[in-house]
C-alpha cells in the first residue's frame, strides 16, 4: 500500500507545463474511487497534508512518506450503506466527514484521526433524507434534508473531538436546496442553489438563520450548482456549474459561469463563461473550484482545467488508455489537482 513515486511528466498539447504528474495512489483492496479529498493531519507537533480516498465500503487516509511518495496510514471500514461523498472541513485538522447513502445521502458521519491515542474513530453526525451537505470553516457542516413536504436546513457544529454540539436551524426556502457555498471572507454569509435554479442567501450566526434573499439565476442555464461565492464592491459573485446547459453559438458548451448578483435588487449578470475547449465533445459531468481555478470531468472521460478570471481552459487531461477520469478535486492548499480514475487510481498533479 505504498504509492509509487513518479517523475513529473509534462503533458503534450494543451496544458503542457501547467499540469505535472507527481504521485499515483492505488488502494489494492478497492476497485472503484467514489471521492477523494485532502485533510490536515497534526501529530507530534507537526502538520501534514494527507489525502483521503473513498470507495463504497471504506475510506483510506494517505500520509506523505517522502517527497512524492505516499503510504496508507489507516482504513475505516464502513457498514452496509455505501460511501457516496467525502465532506471535507476547511481550516480543520484531524477531522473529516463522509456522506453515505444510495441515490441520496442517508447519513453523514465524522471520522476522527488522532494517532497518539490510536483514536481513529467514526460516529454518526446526522441521518435523514439529506439532499446536500457542505463542510464550512469553524468545524461546521450545513445540510438540507426533507421529510415529506417539509425541508430542514441545518448547521451542525463539531467540537475538536468530533462530537456534535447543538445545531442551528436556518430558514428554508420553499424549494429544495441542492448545493451550498460559503461566502468567502464573510463568516456569517452562506449561499445555496435550489431545484428551481435560484440562489438563496442566508445570515448564519449564533442567533438567527435568516433567509435574506432569493434570486433567480435565469432560464438559460437550468440546474445550476454553486461552488464558490465572494462579495466585492457591493456585489455578490457566485461561481456556478451548469451540468444541463445547452450548447450555444455565443458561449459554446459552458461548464462554469461567474455571475454577479446585486443582493439589494436581486438583479444579476453573467460575468465570465468557461466553456469546454474546442474539439471536446460531450458536456460537463462534475467538478470542483478553488480560488480562480476550476476543474471538471467531462462526459468524454477527460478532465479540463480553467482559469475562471480569464474564462480559458488551461489544461486538459485526456482519458487514459485503460481507464477514464471520474473525479477532479483541488487539494485544500497549494496548487494540486487530485484526479480519480474509474479503476480506483488517484493521481496527484501539480498545477
Amino acid at each position: 500500500d505504498v504509492a509509487e513515486p513518479l517523475t513529473p511528466v509534462p503533458l503534450g498539447g494543451l496544458g503542457e507545463e501547467s499540469l505535472q504528474l507527481v504521485s499515483k495512489l492505488k488502494d489494492s483492496s478497492s476497485s472503484c474511487a467514489v471521492d477523494v479529498s485532502t485533510v490536515w493531519w497534526e501529530a507530534a507537533g507537526s502538520r501534514e497534508l494527507c489525502v483521503v480516498t473513498a470507495c463504497e465500503s471504506s475510506v483510506c487516509l494517505w500520509k506523505p512518506l517522502a517527497p512524492d511518495r505516499w503510504g496508507k496510514l489507516y482504513t475505516w471500514q464502513l457498514g452496509d450503506i455505501p460511501v457516496i461523498q467525502i465532506v471535507p472541513l476547511p481550516d480543520t485538522h484531524n477531522l473529516v466527514c463522509i456522506a453515505l447513502g444510495d441515490l441520496e445521502i442517508g447519513e453523514i458521519r465524522w471520522l476522527l484521526l488522532y494517532s497518539e491515542s490510536d483514536s481513529f474513530k467514526q460516529s454518526l453526525l446526522k441521518a435523514g433524507n439529506i439532499k446536500a451537505a457542505l463542510g464550512l470553516k469553524g468545524r461546521r457542516v450545513v445540510n438540507s434534508s426533507r421529510t415529506g413536504q417539509e425541508q430542514q436546513v441545518e448547521m451542525l457544529s463539531l467540537s475538536e473531538l468530533g462530537r456534535s454540539r447543538d445545531g442551528q436551524t436556518l430558514m428554508p426556502p420553499e424549494e429544495t436546496v441542492l448545493a451550498f457555498a460559503e461566502v468567502e471572507g464573510m463568516r456569517e454569509a452562506l449561499v445555496g442553489t435550489t431545484a428551481v435554479n435560484s440562489i438563496v442567501v442566508w445570515s448564519v450566526n449564533l442567533k438567527t438563520g435568516q433567509l435574506l434573499r432569493k434570486m433567480h439565476v435565469g432560464y438559460s442555464y437550468p440546474a445550476s450548482v454553486c461552488h464558490r461565492a465572494y462579495s466585492d464592491s457591493g456585489l455578490l459573485f457566485v461561481v456556478l456549474s451548469h451540468p444541463h446547459a445547452k450548447e450555444s453559438e455565443s458561449c459554446g458548451n459552458p461548464a462554469f459561469r461567474v455571475v454577479a448578483f446585486n443582493p439589494k435588487t436581486a438583479q444579476s449578470r453573467g460575468v465570465m463563461f468557461s466553456s469546454l475547449p474546442p474539439g471536446q465533445a460531450g458536456r460537463y459531468l462534475e467538478g470542483d473550484v478553488r480560488d480562480a481555478s476550476a476543474a471538471a470531468v467531462l462526459t468524454s472521460g477527460a478532465i479540463a482545467v480553467w482559469d475562471l478570471l480569464l474564462g480559458q481552459c488551461t489544461a486538459l487531461l485526456p482519458p487514459g488508455p485503460q481507464s477514464s477520469w471520474a473525479l477532479a478535486r483541488w487539494a485544500t492548499t497549494g496548487a494540486c489537482l487530485l484526479a480519480g480514475q474509474r479503476d480506483g487510481t488517484v493521481c496527484l498533479y501539480r498545477y
Binding site: 464573510m186 442567501v201 435574506l212 455578490l236 448578483f261 435588487t265 438583479q267
Partner: peptide, 23 residues
C-alpha cells in the same frame, strides 16, 4: 450607495438585508 446597471448597490448589503429580514 451607488448606481450600476444592476440597480443601486450598497457595500453594506449584508448588514442592511439582515436588519430588514424577519428574525
Amino acid at each position: 450607495c451607488s448606481e450600476s446597471d444592476l440597480g443601486p448597490i450598497s457595500l453594506n448589503w449584508f448588514e442592511e438585508l439582515s436588519a430588514e429580514a424577519p428574525p
